[in-house]
Amino acid sequence: MLDALLTTVAALLSLCVLSFLYRENPFYRFAEHLAVGVSAGYWVIILYNQSLTAKVLEPLKAGNPLPLVPCLLGLLLFARLFGKIGWVSRIPMAYMLGVGSGVEIPLILQTYVLQQVHATMRPVGFTASTYANLLIALAVICGIAYFFFSTRHRGAFGAVTRVGIWILMIGFGATFGFTVMGRISLLLGRVNFLVGWAGMAFGGPPPGL
């Protein structure tokens, strides 16, 4: 019974959201505001339970004073609100920047740049195993050339940049195609849910989300 009731609430809210396709209306706005409110409340509870309670209050109760250090650093950030001692907020800021840069710069350079560049430098040729590498290398060069604005896109260089535009367009087209597929999948999920909800009236089981 409870399942059926909750499913009906979810179905009605789904219909409220879908009603936007007809035009903006109070039912849609109600569902939208409800989603924002519930999300905010949910996040507050999650952060209270998983961060403040689990990472600070419980260790403190167990006699571990270390969580006070990040708490103190966090509180120092608010010093910016008080003119004379505003400089104090630079201490936690410097800590965050230092740790963040130290952890992120080498890893991002390694994963996003070096390994990707390395993957472009493969044996090229016209055999079955190497033609894809050749295609990738040419596409990368032409794509990058399009973003080189220190010289006019004319002559041979202009031809390379035009190929670069085509490469970019193929990429955008693939992304658009995947996006359409994703959105249709989500609509299908809602349609299946609503069909299942309607089926409950004929004795069917409540559908999943």
């Binding site: 999948s185 989500l186 299946n192």
Partner: peptide
């Protein structure tokens, strides 16, 4: 739930 239809 917003992406479950695709990933579930």
């Amino acid at each position: 739930p917003s992406t479950a239809a695709e990933l579930e």
